[in-house]
Write a protein that binds this DNA or RNA. Structure first.
Lengths: 251, 251
DNA sequence: AAATTAATGTGTGATATTGACGCAATGTAA
DNA sequence: TTACATTGCGTCAATATCACACATTAATTT
């Protein structure tokens, strides 16, 4: 950390950061990957700084890969947060203190920061969450029960979910969040969580199948209680073609 | 300009700008307000820098008010452009030359810039376009015939239109772009321009009226050739209520 | 002044989509 | 074996969409 404070001003674009809202779907719940900050009870979105000659998208991709161990992640920029009040001067000074240094006036790290928000969709089971230097845990948290978060990170997470909801007919949400094989009830639960409301099981199935973007695998998912549902996977070509014009439908 | 170069580093957030795509609707055409840059044939979006302790939204509002003479403008952030290649070093040096100064290495103005894109919707007739220091003209240009633009401004304008198209059922587009009184054909033309396709006159009218967001003023617009169309205005309360859940409809 | 023309206002029927259900089939647990 | 929750498939009325036809009106032409 101490070294970071020394070299940051040279390496990174001033006053600019990226924060990622990483979504995963597990046990019928939509989850977000959060970092538990050292020395406090608060959590944070995985984030980082953008190098001076780096595309901001690349900065976000770096963060993503470091936090999840995954490559080729689906990532979308969704909003830039530029409230000058989003700074937490106390926290910054605390960081200096912990690194055993005196806060320097006008230090790169102590200025006001703008942050560009990205959301990512990843397949839950494939990720290997790992903390970074300033955190001592990296865990999935249910979107319905987010813990106390630093700065405006709660607002950023909420806005990401809003965006997801808004773009549900235009982004490969199912394809990126679900495993290759999935059942109709699982797909429905995902939609319900994102939309924040319940859908009729039968109408949902009819509509989904009508899109022609699913391949019926003929198998069933055994093991669970009750009747075993069929397994499906996405017909990626047709799915992407359909998304371009948008899945019609009022959810 | 020379003074600007001296004080900018102190006053403005480093490496950050805002650019505004200002939409207006006139003579059945969707138009964008552009600045003609001095000493070149290229045009630019109205833009500016963000003060160190200023909300980025406020920075955009400042630009808007200065360029149009209007207050209370409808404004939405839509995307942040962070390609390091969006810089035009030649142009920067030119600016230094014109201000009669030598380009200083590592000068605030010569670093790489991120820009936050905003789109604005204004009532065409109420605006009084005026150039800024670095431009010698400020004019409306049809979205269909945009002139050569600097940097990635063309890309920014295109993305703004895409956003408008995407949000057409959720933003008060008609209300902000049209005068208080307007005819159904005018409203339709606006929709057609934004959507980039023609719509059936009769189905459009039926759908619009079904939303219940229009007030029939009973008057007709005389003067034009042929049958005089009725005048409408928005029922703002109902319009806004309808937008919250989104005007249903596949355009 | 009457006829022409190019818009606008209103209506209709076929088709597709939505929303709210019913009912039988299936796998686990009692 | 039975009970039960869950899944697969189907029905039907209400609504929305799409593709038109026809009558009306105001300026222009003859």
């Amino acid at each position: 950390m101490s070294e970071f404070l020394d070299t940051a001003a040279e390496k990174y674009h001033p006053g600019l950061s990226v924060d990622c809202v990483i979504f995963g779907f597990h046990e019928n719940e939509l989850k977000v990957l959060l970092l538990k900050m050292k020395h406090t009870a608060k959590w944070a979105l995985p984030g980082g700084f953008v190098e001076k000659k780096e595309h901001i998208d690349l900065g976000a991709i770096r963060v993503l890969e470091n936090r999840t161990g995954l490559k080729d992640i689906f990532l979308k920029q969704f909003y830039t947060f530029g409230d000058p009040g989003r700074h937490d001067h106390e926290m910054d000074l605390e960081l200096f203190k912990q690194s055993g240094r005196d806060p320097v006036k006008d230090h790169w790290f102590l200025q006001r920061f703008i942050t560009v928000g990205y959301y990512a969709l990843i397949e839950f089971s494939k990720a290997s969450p790992r903390p970074d230097d300033i955190s001592d845990a990296c865990e999935w948290k249910s979107i319905d029960e987010l813990p106390d978060m630093i700065l405006d990170h709660r607002e950023i997470a909420d806005k990401a979910l809003d965006t997801l909801r808004f773009q549900i007919n235009y982004q490969p949400i199912g394809h990126k969040l679900l495993p290759v094989k999935f059942t109709m009830p699982e797909l429905q639960k995902l939609y319900e969580t994102i939309l924040g409301k319940e859908l009729d099981r039968r109408n949902f199935q009819r509509k989904m199948l009508a899109y022609g973007i699913l391949k019926d695998l003929g198998e069933r998912r055994k093991g669970g209680a009750h009747k075993a549902p069929y397994l499906y996977s996405f017909d990626v070509k047709k799915y992407n073609a359909a998304l371009k014009i948008g899945l019609k439908g009022s959810w």
